[in-house]
């Protein structure tokens, strides 16, 4: 179907193709330059940076920053904590949000628009201002300083937003599919599980990729609900590497690159889903 639909479009000339790739190559160079910068920085020695400045071309070359960053400041442990938290937050938030979005978008629930707006409104307040109340609530519930607290807080805070986004996508699903489901006497659970979730795969994958980068890069919620360094995420370890007065930028760059690998892999894995995934229109 994909092939057919594209064959229907007008063929592009060689000039168009060349322009397309030239423009995008330039754009990509602009977008990749910080990563090149970070890579270069991670391969320099501290003394080279201290003498020649951060913006200078390297006059030193060493991989030493990687093992050193990994050993110091709990980078390894932080990565592991971040992976655990990210996995549970992303999975549970998307599960709950897709359930709520399904209910709101497909059923005549009284005040459903108000409920949706209310859930979205929860995300309009800057998260920073909720930190101290959240810490107190976690303490009151006895889950302060546990990964559970980090996970449930972030689920709560993400829900409204993801529900809103998924609601938008679910409203766009063709009605005929649901009518067919009704005729097949599918219950709500089957409809949700067998029809809505598969059809929402592109948007779920896109959201999962985005959510992974956000949750993985979270610092504020973790430091608000945690006190023990053994439970800190990678971002807190990065912040410690940065130093209060003096920063070992080469170590920080190396650690940042290590921390970038998991969300980058997730994006890579998921982009297939929202790019070449199921074409809704092709189902008709």
């Amino acid at each position: 179907m994909t092939a057919l639909s594209h064959a229907g479009r007008r063929r592009r000339g060689l000039g168009g193709t060349l322009a397309f790739h030239t423009i995008l190559t330039v754009v990509c160079l602009l977008w990749i330059s910080p990563i090149a910068f970070v890579v270069l920085l991670s391969l320099r020695t501290f003394d080279d940076i201290a003498l020649n400045g951060l913006g200078a071309f390297p006059t030193s070359f060493t991989f030493a920053a990687f093992p050193e960053a990994f050993r110091s400041g709990g980078v390894g442990r932080g990565l592991w904590n971040s992976l655990i938290v990210t996995f549970f937050v992303v999975t549970l938030t998307l599960a709950l949000a897709s359930m709520a979005a399904f209910a709101l978008s497909r059923y005549r629930i009284p005040f459903r628009r108000t409920i949706l707006m209310l859930m979205l409104a929860g995300n309009l307040l800057p998260p920073q201002i909720l930190l101290i109340p959240v810490a107190r609530i976690a303490q009151g519930m006895g889950i302060y300083d546990t990964l559970t607290a980090v996970i449930v807080v972030q689920i709560g805070f993400g829900l409204g937003f993801y529900t809103f986004v998924l609601y938008g996508f679910m409203r766009g699903l063709p009605k005929e599919v649901f009518e067919a489901a009704l005729l097949d006497r599918c219950g709500p659970v089957q409809t949700y599980w067998r029809i809505v979730l598969p059809l929402c795969r592109p948007s779920l994958a896109a959201l999962a990729a985005l959510a992974t980068t956000w949750v993985f890069n979270d610092l504020l919620w973790a430091l608000t609900t945690l006190q023990s360094e053994a439970k800190f995420p990678i971002t807190a370890a990065l912040l410690n590497l940065q130093g209060a007065y003096a920063s070992s930028w080469n170590l920080l760059a190396a650690a940042s690159l290590m921390a970038a690998v998991p969300p980058a892999l997730v994006f890579f894995a998921f982009q297939k889903q929202f790019v070449s995934g199921l074409l809704v229109g092709a189902n008709k």
Partner: peptide, 29 residues
């Protein structure tokens, strides 16, 4: 006919996430 009757399980779908958000976002807010 699809939208009118709201089955209990759909209420469950909605109320669980809503309760979580109410507790962790609206209360502190």
């Amino acid at each position: 006919r699809l939208g009118r009757r709201v089955p209990p399980v759909v209420w469950f779908f909605l109320l669980v996430p809503l309760a979580v958000e109410l507790f962790w976002v609206f209360w502190p807010a």
